[in-house]
Amino acid sequence: MIRFDKVTKTYPGQKRAALDAVDLEIEKGEFVFLVGASGSGKSTFLRLILREARPTSGRVYVAGKEINKLSSWKVPKLRRQVGTVFQDFRLLPNKTVTENVAFALEVIGRPRADIKKLVPETLEMVGLEGKGHRMPDELSGGEQQRVAVARAFVNRPMILIADEPTGNLDPATSVGIMKLLDRINRTDTTVIMATHDSSIVDQMRKRVIELEGGLIVRDEARGIYGYQN
C-alpha cells in the first residue's frame, strides 16, 4: 500500500536530512504506530505520503503509484484516498458537525444523494448520532476529534493518517478514539498513527516504527512504545 524506497528528504537551508535513506513497506490493512522524539522525521514521513512534500531523493509509492512523479493536478486524487486527522482537530468553527463532515464530500464534488447517505452513516459509526446539528464549540475534545475522524473517513479512504490524534485528549477519551481507529482499521483501511502516547502503543500491540534523526531505528511487528522521552 505504501512503499518508501531509499527516501531522503532534506529541507532547503538545512544540513541534516529530516529523513535519511528510509526503506519501508506498509501493507494494505496494517495498523502502524510511528514513534520518536520531536524532529525525528515523523511529520516529514506523513507529509511525503500526502505529497505535501517531495523527497530529495528516492521514491515514495502510495497505492501502487510513484507519487513524486504525479503531476500536480493528480495530487487531489491521491489525497482523496488518504484521510487525515490532526492533534488540533481542525474543524470549521462556523459549521455544524454534519456540515463539517459533509464539507469534505462537497468540495470534491460528490452528489448530494451520496452526501445525505454517507454523512449520517459515518457520524453513527464514530458515535455522534444525534449530534449532527451541534457546533464544534459545543462538543468535548473527544467528540471534536470524532468529528475530525468522521470527516477523514467519510469518503472511505484506503489510508488513514493520524498525527498525534490523542495529543490533546485525556487518557479515557484517548481510549475511545483508539477504539474508533481500530474499528476503521478493521474495514481494511491502512492506519498510520504518529504518537507520543506510550500507554496506547503498549496496549494496542501493533506494528511500531521508531524514527530517530531521520533514520528507522526499530520496526517491530507487535511492538511496544519503548522510546523514552
Binding site: P76, V107, N155
Partner: peptide, 17 residues
Amino acid sequence: RREIGIMRLVGASSWHI
C-alpha cells in the same frame, strides 16, 4: 486559510479551491 487547508487535505481540486 482553515477551509482552504481542509479542502487541500481532503483532495479538492485546485480549480475547486
